[in-house]
Amino acid sequence: MERAATEDTWTLAGRTLRSRLIVGTGKYRDAEQTKACLERSGAEIVTVALRRVDLSAKDNLLSWIDRDRYTLLPNTAGCYTADEAIRTLRLARELGIADIVKLEVIGDPKTLLPDNEQTLEAAKVLVKEGFAVMPYVSDDPIACRKLQELGCVAVMPLAAPIGSGLGIRNPHNIRFIIEQATVPVIVDAGVGTASDAAVAMELGIDAVLMNTAIAQAREPERMADAMRLAVIAGRQAYRAGRMPMRAHANASSPTSGLIE
């Protein structure tokens, strides 16, 4: 991994992480492609979903994923109520996975936008039960503030709807969320391509979480590479501090000493 990334760590629920890219494991062609993309993304945390076992499936994700290398982050995708999400994560914990969980309570099947009210309710219960909760939430500074106040270990505002690839729709709100943040801010959902990831990182967030942007690229492996680099580039640009924008040109070469 690039030196720039290794010397710039961040902390999530007591873990020190080098990679600022968290990736999903859904929508890939097969286990081989998933593995290749995880590897090239450089991610240290990867999300997984909980479902009924498929008795005809020949291999289980847990049998091929390298759990020494990747921290699994179980999600509650498909849950529409706080109760369903809590039930799902209790089962996930029974599978012996680490305490960090991605809480996601959806309010509508068409937009897959979060139901912040149900999310808050579930977060309250889960925090009490000792889970390290990472809630997926609207890009709403108030909801994010409430979630961090009740003990969530990160807040994960969306860039745009899940799987839409529309990029950061409201950078101002993401900035408000960062300004007030006492926990890591992770942009989750809506990133479409490398520039979206870089823009997100340039805002000063701590990490980006994505799945579809890599899995549904024409060449997922190459896009995983692009995303790794974009996250590093965006983070470095944020740390470097960009030049001010000007309405007019400003010459880069000296204006004196010109030949006559």
Partner: peptide, 10 residues
């Protein structure tokens, strides 16, 4: 009974 496991997801 519900018997569940992890699958790929985002």
């Amino acid at each position: 009974l519900e018997i569940v496991t992890f699958v790929g997801g985002g």
